[in-house]
Design a binder for these strands. Structure first.
Lengths: 169, 169
DNA sequence: GGGTTTGTTCAAATTGAATTGAACAATCCA
DNA sequence: TGGATTGTTCAATTCAATTTGAACAAACCC
């Protein structure tokens, strides 16, 4: 019943746990580590911005995880430093970006585009290899398949901007 | 120089390795295991349909992996049994589905929709929990966030059919 | 029935990615 | 300068997902 030794609140309440759970599942679908979901989820249900130490304390994760998690989330544009954090406050506090457009945009930019690009490069290579095959029938078959791959990539490239547009309401 | 003990061809040639590599990377982005990429990739570059044993032999994966991999690929509609496989042939042979529309459709149906659905359910729960919060300010804040989550889900639901349409050429 | 070929299942081993934690910067304050 | 606070880095550990392999089922043939 007594609050924890320090004044800091501790232990997630049931509602917070629910939200964190939803985001943990959510990020797994996107192929991101669970800690990312925990951190973003807790920020998402918290009225006030949280510091790195808040995250460590409340989620019971290591400082290392929290630091790396925040870095990734910042790179995705999913989290920002809360400005105007008090007068002589040294610590930095974080708050979530909650506009879907921004989240999707960051994810596409950081996690999807790079893969698409490297894929295109590999397919260009492949295209050369396939063109150099001796047997004409076999070559025709392979070039056909490679063309298809190129088509897929182009489709992917065309879909992304559209996605961003649609998800921006 | 001599062919392998049995008549079966063995060891991927460089071109096959390139293609398999591309698909291994591809499926990792989608959160699927590497063996799935290997299997689909090899089917994709192979002119003739392949049997489970072909896959085991050429990719050097276990029969277990090959069997489970084919099962998943079939469930995604990414692979089908080649019909008319010879007269008294018992073994079944597989060939890849190469229409992007079909691949995307299967992936959405099997891997995306289920998560979306379970997400929606959890959010409905959450909505109730949030509505029951005492403090009116806190409640208002939480309901706002939950609303946002619901919006996200709806956006997701709206995007999927669109994706399918666009990727069907 | 026995024997062979084809494919599935699942507990155990493997592997690769995420997490930890301790050492290290950097900044501030007295 | 020394000590306190905040945050980062990275090698070692932990953990979860994938893969293996051996036992099992099913279909076929003699």
């Amino acid at each position: 019943m007594t609050p924890p030794p320090d004044g800091a609140s501790n232990e997630l309440d049931p509602l917070e746990r629910q939200v964190v759970g939803i985001f943990v599942d959510g990020v797994r679908v996107l192929g991101l580590p669970r800690s990312i979901g925990e951190i973003y989820g807790l920020l998402f249900v918290s009225r006030a911005p949280l510091s790195l130490d808040d995250l460590v304390l409340r989620l019971k994760i290591s400082k290392g995880s929290a630091s790396q998690g925040l870095r990734l989330l910042k790179s995705l544009g999913a989290v920002r430093e809360a400005d105007g954090n008090g007068n002589g406050e040294r610590r930095t506090y974080y708050e979530p970006a909650v506009e879907l457009k921004r989240l999707v945009g960051g994810f596409i930019r950081e996690q999807v585009r790079p893969h698409l690009e490297s894929g295109k490069t590999k397919i260009r290579h492949l295209s050369e290899t396939a063109g150099a095959v001796e047997d004409p029938d076999q070559r025709k078959f392979l070039c056909d398949r490679v063309d298809r791959l190129e088509q897929w990539m182009r489709s992917g490239g065309r879909v992304l901007p559209l996605l961003q547009k649609i998800l921006g309401q």
